[in-house]
Write a protein that binds this DNA or RNA. Structure first.
Lengths: 196, 196
DNA sequence: CCTACCGATCGGTAGG
DNA sequence: CCTACCGATCGGTAGG
């Protein structure tokens, strides 16, 4: 039955995407081969090419699936009824939670964008910009006095620097937990706005 | 004359290292080939192997030369007679200046460590740890009250997150200059210590 | 007898 | 879903 096969098809694609995400994160897009991915999936290289037309197409799926989850977080948080500073702290926690829950996807999203064809790269970049724009709007609303756009951009990027760098050092089993890190990054950003 | 040739030798090695840094930063270690490096130097692949025994050896030189400049900054700043909070702000400015002045080297240092053989990787990591340890010691001295080691580590890593992420977004020709970014990263870190 | 350096090619492996 | 392959290019080395 066609429907049965389609369901199986999507399931197998997801296995490939997950294994590819782990390998791209561990060895880089150039360092991880299609053969590596096939081996991780206990299958052949040709089978991979049955599900994906190219190595880049796998990379796009890894990135796009992940950033869609991040934009979904933004959309959901934006519907909540809280003051902007509380929303900003909540956004930081939600993002950190998703970063940790999909560490390989997150690392690939951060570092392998250049390996994507121009049109697909633009699609990802547009979604990234949406997340940044929402972050800036929360910061603008939370600031005690109007902040100019350039200053707002810098504050937002320093905030994302704190969050995006955590994958290099943060240990979930360590003495400071995920939410505490998110709170620290969010609160220092909010406090800084008061002195701008 | 042997001395004359030795001088030329070092000069040519530096050209190779610089071109390699740019290519590794632009295409990644795996994505940039020895042939690419040779072409950028207007020479042959064999010539590259006359100066370096392997691709990894070039990578090590790129990283090691750069981190030696960073540790030199730490050593120099540590001799200055200023209160710890001022020293911390000065360190942030000096590091940002060096990041911008050697952007390719800095990017390679941040992202290509895994491509180094274990012993050479450890040598770089040891120097990184020295920079982090000095940063933490300044923060500890600048804090109004004793801060526990775990909290200090998190503050230091959030600080380096802000600094290390700048290469993805900071525009030197933009409305906010390099020193201002360094000051913002340093001051928010110092202010955060007061509320810990 | 050395160094500096070339054009050509090695054995293997990449994506497809 | 596999084996058998391709054009090209990889990091590295040969003779001179």
């Amino acid at each position: 039955m066609a429907r049965q096969q389609a369901a199986d098809y999507e399931q197998k694609r997801e296995i490939i995407t997950k294994q590819a995400a782990d390998l791209f994160a561990a060895k880089g897009f150039d360092g991880a081969s299609i053969s590596d991915i096939a081996a991780a999936c206990n299958t052949s290289k040709s089978l991979i090419y049955h599900y994906y037309p190219s190595k880049e197409a796998i990379l796009f799926d890894v990135m796009n699936g992940h950033i869609d989850l991040l934009t979904a977080i933004v959309d959901e948080v934006s519907t909540r009824n809280s003051p902007p500073d509380a929303l900003f702290r909540e956004l930081a926690r939600e993002l950190m939670q998703r970063y940790m829950g999909a560490a390989s996807h997150q690392k690939v999203l951060l570092y392998e964008l250049d390996n994507l064809p121009a049109d697909e790269r633009l699609e990802i970049v547009r979604k990234q910009r949406k997340i940044i724009a929402f972050t800036e709007s929360l910061l603008a609303a939370a600031a005690p006095a109007p902040v100019d756009a350039a200053q707002l951009r810098v504050r937002a990027m320093l905030f994302f620097g704190m969050l995006n760098w955590t994958h290099t050092w943060f240990n979930p089993a360590g003495p400071v937990n995920r939410d505490a890190i998110a709170d620290m990054a969010a609160q220092t950003t909010l406090d800084a706005l008061k002195s701008d």
